[in-house]
Computed example of a mutant assay.
Amino acid sequence: MEIATPDQIRSPVEVAPRALTLFAVVAVGLGADREEIIPWLRENDLFEELSPMEAQFIEDPEPSERQITNASWYSERLIALLWALDLASMPPADERCDTSLLQDILPPYAEVNERDFIKSAKLRSGEELIAMVDQILNLHWEARDARIHDRPPRNVDLGIIQERHHAINWVIGYDGLPWDEVTTDT
C-alpha cells in the first residue's frame, strides 16, 4: 500500500481497498454477521487494510451501541469513496445514501470479484475531486455555522456532510493523515 504525502491525492489502489474494508464495517454496523465478514476480509487480504478503530470494532463480539451507530453512519463515508471512484453519484447533502446501492456496486455481492474491483479502480480527475472537496467544505461550514447560530441549515445535514467530508479529505491526502486521524476542519 502506498503512503500518501500531505495533500497528495491517493491512488485508486489505495481508495478501492479502503472502500471494500469500509463496506465490511458498514455491513457489521447494519447487522451483518461478523463471523462471515472477518473470514471474507482475511480471504481477500483486506483485514490488514482495516484502520485500528475499524479492526477493534470488527473483532469486538459485543460493540457498544455508539460503535454500532457510528459504523452505520460510515455509509456516508463510503458513498463519498464510491463517488471518488466514479462508481456512484453523490446524494444531496441532506439525504442519507441508499445503502442497498452498495451491494450493487461492491463485492462480494456485485458481479465483480475483489481483486478485479481493486485492479480496475479509477479515480475521478483531480479537478473533480478538488471541486467536491470545496463543495463539501462549504456545506460543512454552512451546517456548523447554522448550529452555532441556532438556526436550521439549508439543504444540508451536519451528520451526513461531516462523514462525507472525512472521506473526501482522506482521498485528497489532506495533511497526509491516516484514515482514523483525518480532520474535517471548516
Rank of each mutant, 00 (worst) to 15 (best):
E49F: 10
F57R: 01
N113Y: 01
P92R: 15
L82C: 05
A167V: 07
E36W: 03
T183H: 02
W73T: 04
Q56H: 10
D185S: 14
M132T: 15
H165Y: 15
S100M: 05
N138S: 14
A143S: 07
E65Q: 13
A16N: 06
G173W: 04
E48T: 10
T69H: 10
I37V: 02
I118S: 06
C97E: 00
T183V: 06
A131W: 11
Q56Y: 09
L81F: 13
D134V: 13
V133N: 13
S89H: 03
E111D: 15
F57I: 13
M53V: 08
P6C: 12
I161W: 00
N155M: 13
R66F: 03
E142M: 12
A121V: 07
I58S: 03
N169Q: 03
L87R: 14
Q162W: 13
R124G: 12
R124F: 03
M1V: 12
A19T: 04
G176I: 11
L20H: 05
P108H: 00
D45G: 10
P39C: 03
D175I: 06
E14W: 03
P92Y: 07
A131G: 15
L158K: 05
P6N: 10
L50I: 03
L177H: 04
P52R: 05
V13T: 12
T183K: 10
E181F: 03
I3T: 11
L82I: 05
T183W: 08
C97K: 00
A131N: 14
L158F: 10
E14D: 09
P178I: 08
I118E: 00
Q67I: 00
A121Q: 10
S125A: 09
R124P: 09
E49W: 08
L85R: 04
P153K: 09
A24K: 00
E127F: 06
L22M: 15
N44S: 01
D7H: 07
A110D: 07
A131S: 15
S51H: 05
T5Y: 12
L123I: 05
R66I: 10
E128A: 11
W40G: 05
T21F: 02
S125D: 14
H149G: 04
V28N: 00
M1S: 12
E2S: 09
V26H: 08
R96S: 01
G31Q: 00
I9Q: 01
D157T: 11
E65T: 11
Q103G: 08
S120N: 14
A88I: 01
P91K: 08
T184R: 13
F57Q: 07
G29P: 07
L20G: 14
A121K: 06
P52G: 05
V156K: 01
P39A: 11
